[in-house]
């Protein structure tokens, strides 16, 4: 009796197309309304990219639940949409022999599933760390236990207008005393290692004393030390997110091929 209810009512409901539309519409409306608050309340929302979502919910959103409540609500709706998509994908996979022509569309579903899992994983187990001040030759500890970053060389690239254009950082990533990665990090070229991503954010200089006094006893020129400001984020779900993106991209290409083949055969969308 229980099995029959699951097979005839619950499972079809969980896989339902209409449920997907209702959840996607509800999530769209909630985020639309909520996003209007983002610009009017920068003290609450401006930091969302500087920390993981779970940390933001814990440290910032909890202070103003009324103004930030749309974020967990949208998360809940997207979570339900994730479950619906997962059930839909499993339902397709179980009948793949007769429904393989829809592989493109379901690869897009799989991509969405992987992306949601990856984002949740990264939010829960990752961290974001901005403005790490590192001098040339200095080794700093990262938030990941046992991991260190050493800046071996730094060269800012200044444009003709005097505006900084790029920052060349020769970086070494260490696990204890062992080197695990080495890269020249600049804009759009980060150092990546097992979910850790290190990239340049800015640079500056700090006063480091004076040059030795001259023969007349006059004080020497001031000396400045240049430092690099680095962002070091850790997202264990980044690889899974990339896999989701690849699945989605492949799904789009397959769906396009399938779409034109169907149109060539004169098939119309089936009616639910």
């Amino acid at each position: 009796m229980k099995t029959t209810f699951i097979q005839t009512k619950l499972w079809p409901f969980l896989c339902s197309l209409k449920l997907a539309i209702v959840l996607a519409s509800a999530a769209t409306l909630v985020v639309m309304a909520g996003s209007l608050l983002i610009l009017s309340k920068p003290e609450l929302f401006a930091m969302m990219d500087s920390m993981t979502l779970s940390l933001w919910l814990d440290q910032v959103a909890s202070r103003s639940p009324l103004l930030t409540g749309w974020v967990p609500l949208a998360g809940l709706l997207l979570g339900l949409l994730f479950l619906n998509t997962l059930c839909c994908f499993i339902d397709w996979a179980l009948a793949i022999r007769s429904r393989w022509r829809k592989s493109g569309e379901y690869l897009i579903h799989l991509g969405f599933i992987l992306l949601v899992v990856a984002y949740f994983w990264g939010s829960m187990a990752g961290f974001r760390s901005e403005g790490n001040q590192v001098f040339v030759g200095q080794t700093v500890a990262l938030k990941l236990p046992g991991m260190y970053l050493r800046l071996e060389a730094f060269q800012p690239i200044i444009g003709q207008s005097g505006r900084p254009m790029d920052m060349l950082n020769s970086l070494v990533l260490l696990k204890g005393d062992t080197e695990v990665a080495r890269a020249q990090v600049r804009i759009n070229h980060p150092l990546t290692w097992q979910g850790l991503v290190v990239l340049p954010a800015s640079f500056g200089r700090t006063f480091a004393g004076y040059q030795p006094a001259g023969p007349g006893g006059a004080r020497g020129e001031p000396v400045y030390k240049t430092y690099s400001l680095l962002t070091a984020n850790y997202d264990p779900g980044a690889g899974l997110a990339l896999a989701g993106g690849i699945a989605m991209g492949a799904g789009v290409l397959l769906a396009l091929v399938s779409f034109y083949r169907k149109r060539a055969r004169g098939e119309r969308p089936e009616i639910d």
Binding site: I38, Y119, V197, L199
Partner: peptide
Amino acid sequence: YVAWGYYFSWNIKGIWSAL
């Protein structure tokens, strides 16, 4: 991800593009 170190931004443009 390669420019900022995260693949989804909670900036208004990122949110509305997702919408």
